[in-house]
Design a binder for these strands. Structure first.
Lengths: 217, 217
DNA sequence: TAAAGAAGTAACTAGTTAGTGCGTTAAATG
DNA sequence: CATTTAACGCACTAACTAGTTACTTCTTTA
């Protein structure tokens, strides 16, 4: 509908570029939603940061919630696709699991907006995610990935039998997510700078230890 | 200042009762902040739910943020005091640790507002908690509690040496917190009702297993 | 019982905020 | 080159929202 012949032109920098404007809005919205939550985010601020007119937001995304939904979907698709790119099936079970734990931690660390977006979505009882079929499909792949790592480990005699892949998946996420999403209150409660370089290094080692001990025979 | 002679009268139900009004406001505010976050909460709604006039909120708590800070402080003090009441020092190390894991899980389960309040506070980079000295003091007690359980376990030969009590504390919270705060997105991602009775039972068992394997020799 | 002080209320303000109506301008098309 | 289509922007509105002003009513105490 938008441009059949004009697939990826990138020939000359167009002054009017729908895709580029859309991308700028999404980028600005991601930051704004992550910083202030869905309720706290301001549409005017998103438009300004995106160097777009507010009218464009409503033209491309219908509403503030429509924009949030797209931002959230994109965020989930990004982490799910990055997980697939790890090619864990090529590694032995122990190395594969350790790599997944490390990847999850580093992804959260490099993309703190992801954590806040997920928190915001849960505050709204996942009403936006519910509508998205593609998220379910890509999540299923992640569970299957962990399932097969576990199976291979059991066969190789390095992992114990009976570990639920969903519970393991949740726990891998949990030990990183909690630490990082609560880094501000955590720094006060535990009277220790949780984001100091050595603190982060100590935590990822602890997380690997936690997960490995959980699955090992 | 408010009433020296009238310490806990409870003689006749007063039509005008400052303490009762204050309590109703705090209760309504806790629910409203938990449901909608600090930004999404509406002062008018809090007043209405509390069956108090909005002016009273500003009289007792100065501002919306002042009210939020009091709600948050109260929430932290409640869980910290409940932890102390477990008297874990009277149990053997293994039983004490298991009881703490179970308590933490059940507290989150029964008080989901706590999770949302903490999330909201982290969205605001812990600016309200920073001001509270009493929170630091009571948190220190929790870390000391876990420290002494670990120490006793090492001496008894049931726990391994070198486990950082802060990391352990964080992990005990993490495995419950993540599961419950993300119960809405989780139910979609993992295509499983995470709040079903047997799912909850399975999770607490998994959490105990995770923590026990982490500290055992 | 009169005076003082505290508890409580209605109505308002000044500033925001999501969302729109309508016109303008650039690019594609025949 | 004329016409259509899509990108873009200004200026507005209707509803909302934190916080306040000015007042009434109840309770305590000298």
């Amino acid at each position: 509908m938008t441009g059949e012949q004009t697939e990826k032109p990138a020939r000359k920098p167009r002054i009017r570029d729908a895709e580029a404007t859309k991308a700028r809005i999404l980028d600005a919205a991601k930051k704004e939603f992550a910083k202030n939550g869905l309720g706290g985010a301001r549409v005017d601020d998103i438009a300004e940061k995106a160097k777009a007119n507010k009218r464009m937001i409503y033209h491309y995304f219908e509403s503030k919630e429509g924009l949030f939904q797209t931002v959230l979907e994109d965020a989930y698709l990004d982490i799910r696709s990055a997980e697939q790119k790890l090619h864990l099936e090529d590694l032995d079970p122990t190395a594969a699991l350790e790599k997944l734990v490390r990847f999850t931690w580093e992804y959260y660390l490099k993309n703190p907006e992801f954590l806040t977006l997920v928190n915001s979505e849960n505050l709204h009882r996942a009403k936006h995610l519910k509508k998205s079929e593609i998220i379910k499909v890509s999540s299923r792949k992640l569970v299957n990935l962990v399932s097969s790592i576990l199976e291979r480990g059991v066969k190789a005699g390095v992992f114990r039998d009976g570990v639920d892949p969903v519970q393991l998946n949740i726990t891998i996420a949990a030990v990183g997510y909690y630490y990082l999403t609560n880094r501000f209150t955590g720094t006060i409660i535990y009277e220790r700078d949780l984001m100091a370089k050595d603190a982060l290094e100590q935590r990822i080692q602890f997380n690997i230890e936690t997960i490995m001990r959980l699955v090992t025979v």
